[in-house]
Design a protein around this nucleic acid. Structure first.
Lengths: 217, 217
DNA sequence: GCTTGTGAAGACCTTCACAGCA
DNA sequence: TGCTGTGAAGGTCTTCACAAGC
């Protein structure tokens, strides 16, 4: 299996393809855990409920990782996908807002095994500052810039009320944050070069009810 | 403003359009709160950072809600969007899994104001059963079918470990659930007619790092 | 035999640009 | 004049189908 195109930035990769790569990675990890050593696009497609052609096409944007007549080496594919996604390293993450939601995020055990390490927590509320959440001390917003620099943080998780989200994000962007996972139910504006992803269960439910409504009368 | 096509099921509505309608609804609610009475697709596009043409096209799948030369009546658009999405009613929701995540979901104050009412909580763990979370009693899985029927529940939120998610979902589907909001980091299989939406912050972060990685070396 | 990688075809979605109307 | 609603054009993404290779 050839190496993934090192350092190359494949400009023409469709957004949707990038969205699917983490799903492929998760599936491949699962297969590896089952002891599977080689997987065809056919089989991967069954696991992921998608078409073999789509998987092959998606992977072909980055290189040629399979062997005709056999399929893909699971370990190799795992390594390649990690590398493409930039997951062959640890990413330090800061959480802003340590209310109920922020605390649940900090306590969520799913981040660390995937290489996302929460290394700082901030809150504007003086009553929260100084408290401990897991093994983090809640810091005041004044310490944001210095701490993000010191701890090499490039990703922030925003868990503040919607009304405060934009000012917090402006602050994070000025501090050099380049990726934001936004839990506040509001649309954020960021300059080019900063990536935002939103997590909003209400929006998900609202799109769902459209289809539920069709079902009956 | 004409009424939204009542009862009609617009078969040819693109998925992406349905995904955007909740965003439009949220923006329109915001405008209403600001006292805005009429809004053009131009202005809505600025608020949402999208094009006026896209908004007009999206809405045109469902009817003609605007007035030439003026724009859209905010109150009317709010009502129409609610109706299209099936949000002109209350939806009862059950939560399965009352670990840290499930409890955070039950305590999240964002659902009720949007018409999603959590009316039941279940857990397979006997130690959890009988406990109170907010004003709900945690029930054993044995009571699932009867309770969902009694309380007219059609949507479930799944907050169990990945390893148990599929069996829980099979159970929910058999009990007649038609919409599932899945927080477990795993791909779920459901029969046609059942809608699944996934909330997985790790997948979001993993797609994000692809772009962050491009930024520097 | 089986499976990849990929141009070409087709489906889907977005944007354009303007007729029609307030 | 200003803005909607919409066919048509343009762009993006998915699927097809097959040559190439194990």
């Amino acid at each position: 299996m050839p190496l993934a195109a090192e350092g190359r930035l494949p400009a023409g990769v469709p957004r949707v393809v990038v969205e699917r790569l983490p799903l492929y990675l998760r599936a491949v990890k699962g297969l590896l855990a089952e002891g599977v050593e080689v997987v065809s696009s056919q089989r991967l497609g069954e696991v992921l409920q998608t078409t073999p052609a789509q998987i092959r096409k998606d992977l072909s944007y980055f290189g040629r990782f399979g062997k005709q007549g056999r399929g893909y080496n699971v370990t190799g594919l795992l390594r390649v996908l990690s590398q493409i996604l930039g997951l062959d390293r640890v990413w330090n993450v800061a959480v802003v807002g340590v209310g109920r939601l922020g605390r649940a995020i900090i306590s969520y055990p799913g981040f660390a095994p995937e290489g996302f390490r929460i290394v700082a927590a901030f809150d504007a509320d003086p009553n929260q500052v100084g408290q401990r959440v897991e093994d983090l001390r809640v810091q005041p917003m004044e310490e944001l810039d210095a701490t993000l620099r010191e701890r090499d943080v490039h990703i922030a998780i925003v868990a503040v009320p919607a009304s405060q989200a934009q000012v917090v994000v402006d602050r994070l962007v000025r501090a050099g944050i380049r990726g934001i996972l936004n839990y506040a139910p509001t649309h954020l504006q960021v300059p080019p070069g900063v990536t935002v992803r939103n997590i909003d269960p209400v929006l998900s439910l609202q799109a769902m009810t459209f289809y539920l409504k069709q079902g009956r009368g």
